[in-house]
Design a binder for these strands. Structure first.
Length: 270
DNA sequence: GTTGAGCGTT
């Protein structure tokens, strides 16, 4: 049986879910099945994939029939080299329904009373917990459709476990990061101040009148930006840009701009 | 051809 997750979860009544992390993006359930099945009876293996690309996210869920077997697999497969990468096997903390697993049920095997040295090759992966946003940024990247969908479900468990951890982790760093990513697109697609549409009622104590006398800003020219000497109005331009290419507007990538430069009708009117 | 913290399928 190599068909896992074909019809959803078969039966999670008496099964224990194990979370396998650090697996390659190419690792499939079939590859993990023989590995985990050797240490116990694997009921089902599920590997979440991306909604857009459909690629594996890098972790899989292995369901065991018995906890003792699962525990053994965790201890045995945890830190194993798979596909040239060290995988991390641990009991799942959350359920498929965003619900917590029975307390002590699955975790009861975790804190084994035995003198088992848990300190394995567990690399310091726990860099910054608040970085969970990072993975989100690339997850949503540019997908407004699934935004609400994922956001909704993420918020569900977020408030359950991540809430207490976010005491004051309002690191503004994430802003810098996101900005860096979107900076390119933002700058390219929105040469104007279209971002204002987000906060129209934004009262700026310090107007764009930057106190920079150094800057050679022709005063006579920027005196009336709204008025254009030519028939080129900002509105007109905006409309044109939107109609031409709202997604990616290249400064010189305008092949259509010079299409059929015929001042007069070559239809032979004259 | 891709990144590498983390928790799930209709």
């Amino acid at each position: 049986m190599s068909h896992f997750g074909r019809s959803g979860p078969p039966d999670i009544s008496d099964t224990y879910s194990l979370l396998v992390l650090n697996i390659t993006f190419r690792t499939t359930a079939d590859d993990l099945f023989p590995l985990f099945d050797k240490y116990g009876k694997v009921v089902d293996i599920f590997i979440p994939k991306d909604r857009r690309t459909g690629e594996s996210r890098g972790f899989a869920f292995v369901r065991y029939k018995y906890a003792d077997e699962a525990s053994k697999a965790v201890d045995r497969l945890d830190g194993r080299m798979v596909d040239g990468r060290e995988i991390t096997v641990q009991f799942a903390k959350y359920g498929p329904n965003a619900e917590r697993i029975h307390k002590g049920r699955i975790i009861e095997t975790s804190p084994k009373p035995n003198s088992r040295h848990r300190s394995r090759s567990r690399s310091p992966r726990r860099r910054h917990r608040d970085d969970y946003r990072d993975r989100d940024y690339r997850r949503r990247s540019r997908s407004r459709s699934y935004d609400r969908y994922e956001r909704d479900r993420y918020r569900g468990r977020d408030r359950d476990n991540r809430r207490r951890s976010r005491s004051h982790s309002a690191s503004p760093d994430y802003k810098s990061r996101r900005r860096g990513r979107y900076d390119d697109e933002r700058h390219s697609r929105s040469p104007s101040r279209s971002v204002d549409s987000r906060s129209p009622a934004r009262h700026s104590p310090s107007p764009r009148r930057s106190p920079s006398p150094r800057k050679s800003v022709s005063p006579r020219r920027s005196a009336s930006p709204r008025k254009s000497p030519r028939g080129e109005s900002p509105e007109n331009r905006s409309r044109d840009g939107r109609s031409a290419s709202p997604r990616s507007v290249s400064p010189r990538g305008r092949p259509d701009a010079s299409r059929s430069p015929s001042p007069r009708n070559s239809n032979g009117d004259d």
